[in-house]
């Protein structure tokens, strides 16, 4: 299998954990894996991306533009920002809840994500879900990364068995949040599967 997965969002949203889980699960399946992450100043509220590359044909640590099979987006504008990476026929899993940058609040710029959602719906093969709302029902928006992994899983585009994913999630989340993270993952799977149908 050769597969390129781009995870994008805003610094502080927990994108790194998602990429590590996918990488670990793919390695568990015996594939060679490479990944790369944004670290440093951009983590302070700036756009962040993780590139996960599975398979023998990946040399560059970053996914070449137009090659990502799957984008997992934590924020709609960040998905649009990274659309260049999406391959023809690729899928974007998008959390529709917008994060307004501080600069937008200052200038009165009306960014609320709606334009991005509309654009994605019209031009991109995508699954849109209000991940924040789903997670609030589980008690905290902190489970967003696992919920989105679940949606990717449910979409069938991840091609890694669900139980392998769950095992890696369990290894990497604090024990007291293990159960609720699995709930988030399973809820994500449902959303992903529904969108497929």
């Amino acid at each position: 299998m050769n597969k390129d997965i781009l995870i994008c969002g805003v610094g502080g949203q927990g994108t790194v954990l998602s990429s590590r889980i996918i990488a670990a699960a793919a390695m568990e399946q015996g594939y060679p894996v490479k990944s790369a992450e944004t670290i440093g100043m951009a983590q302070r509220g700036g756009p962040v991306t993780s590139h996960v590359r599975i398979g023998e044909n990946a040399f560059s640590p970053l996914i070449p533009k137009g090659k990502a099979d799957l984008i997992i987006g934590f924020e709609p504008a960040e998905v649009v920002r990274n659309l260049d990476y999406l391959a023809t026929g690729g899928l974007a899993v998008v959390n529709t809840a917008a994060i307004r940058p501080t600069t937008a609040s200052l200038s009165g710029d009306g960014y609320d994500g709606s334009e991005m959602r509309a654009y994605l719906q019209e031009h991109v093969n995508c699954i849109l879900a209000d991940g924040n709302k789903e997670c609030e029902q589980l008690g905290s928006v902190k489970f967003l990364n696992i919920l989105l992994l679940g949606i990717a899983q449910g979409s069938g585009k991840l091609e890694i068995p669900g139980e392998v994913m769950i095992k890696e999630i369990e290894k990497r989340v604090p024990e007291k949040f293990r159960e609720v993270n699995i709930l988030a993952f399973n809820r994500g799977c449902e959303i992903g599967e529904q969108s497929k149908a």
Binding site: M41, R44, G46, G66, V80, R100, P101, T102, T103, A104
Partner: peptide, 18 residues
């Protein structure tokens, strides 16, 4: 060169103090 549909203007996200 891959031609993408024109994307809407994106919000800038300069890094800020937490």
């Amino acid at each position: 060169a891959q031609e993408n549909a024109k994307i809407p203007p994106l919000p800038a996200r300069p890094p800020v103090l937490c």
